[in-house]
Design a protein around this nucleic acid. Structure first.
Lengths: 218, 218
DNA sequence: GCCTCTTTTGAGAGTTACTGTCATTTGACA
DNA sequence: TGTCAAATGACAGTAACTCTCAAAAGAGGC
């Protein structure tokens, strides 16, 4: 159950930044929780693919994952969370804060995102495609992306605030975070809508080129 | 009940573009429907103000408006719609399409929006403040703003598509609509969060200045 | 290995937003 | 006034949550 790398890690094996946080020594309790989360999500995606998001009830998911509905609600507060929550936020935040402080924020985002996405796609491309395709298809999920709590807007805003070393964001920071958040969401959704055929790095590049140019030509 | 301007309209009286569409000769049936809609909304906002959005049930609203719950659902498909639907979209669309075709889209938006908002505030300032304050406070409503169907993004996108005279929007149009939509929402919410103390035209101006400059200085 | 404490889980009852059906009422129109 | 279509209300049902409380399971000291 913890049979990871019995000998030595391949020197150049690309490490999955998300999975990496799971390698830390965990208690039995925490390992079980993690496993349950994964099982629930896997069963949920399977059922969503088979019957559609709206036609799948939480009871069915709980039954498939072999837990009680009560427990399901403890793991995922809402049905949307099954699709919308992930463990990327701290990684993205760290990557953004790693960029040089003087760099324009748009440039920081472009560089950090392209790097992260490339790494991520090597490991979780299929799951990401499944999730994002669901988001494009189910209106409730698309709206949920902008729900308070873990929206991309809030992530960008917290980074902007921290970079500036201030306590409360300015209005300009809010607008910037909102616009970049919506634009990057659009990039990922466009990628998923085409089943990942278009290179997502290209899409992100075009997105930020547009933002930097002040929407020239539109 | 239709006692509007019994003598003659004041020559410079600013006409309310929204109310204007209601002056058309309507059948009794349509007048009643309109009246019911207004009553329901009025009672809903009153209850929301008294007890909060989440603590108010649709049954209470139906009872206060003296209609059955079934009928309430026929007027407003969801609870969010009580707050999020309005009659502004056609007016905004028309104003945007009225701008010169060669004008950069950002400029069109800035000019059209500032004009519309000024006109609107003269008539429905208080109601708009109430609604938008609710949106800032209730996460579900904020998310609902981006639900498919009548989001600002979709409005901008349809205008962009029509202006270009094409059938399907380009990816650049999508990103533009998403970014401007999120930015303008932010402007309105900021205005409401401060109880309308800051001039909304200033906020819109600052918003578009930021977008035009490619987020210079952030 | 056993005991105790804390965390996690499951069972069950309740609330509310929403859906669908069907009979009744109400306005439109000749 | 009579006929038809649209609007309404009553009712039954579903599913996503919420709350409470007791049982089960892992953590840690002995």
């Amino acid at each position: 159950m913890k049979s990871e790398q019995p000998t030595a890690a391949l020197p150049d094996a690309p490490t999955n930044p998300v999975q990496a946080r799971l390698e830390a020594p965990l208690s039995l309790r925490e390992r079980k929780k993690l496993k349950t989360r994964q099982t629930v999500r896997r069963e949920a995606y399977r059922l969503f693919a088979e019957q559609g998001y709206e036609n799948t009830t939480l009871e069915q998911i709980a039954a498939a994952a072999e837990i009680s509905p009560s427990t399901l609600f403890r793991y995922f507060a809402t049905k949307e969370d099954l699709v919308l929550t992930d463990e990327y936020d701290p990684v993205i935040t760290a990557a953004l804060l790693d960029r040089p402080a003087g760099e324009p924020f748009l440039r920081s985002c472009r560089e950090a995102l392209i790097g992260l996405i490339r790494a991520l796609l090597q490991h979780e491309r299929q799951e990401l495609l499944t999730r994002m395709r669901l988001v494009t298809e189910v209106p409730a999920l698309r709206a949920g992306l902008f729900r308070a709590g873990n929206s991309p807007q809030e992530l960008y805003l917290s980074v902007l605030t921290r970079r500036a070393g201030v306590e409360h964001p300015t209005y300009e920071m809010r607008v910037t975070a909102a616009a970049i958040g919506a634009a990057t969401v659009e990039a990922v959704l466009q990628w998923a809508a085409q089943d990942g055929r278009e290179d997502i790095a290209d899409l992100v590049d075009r997105t930020f080129a547009l933002l930097e140019s002040g929407f020239a030509g539109v």
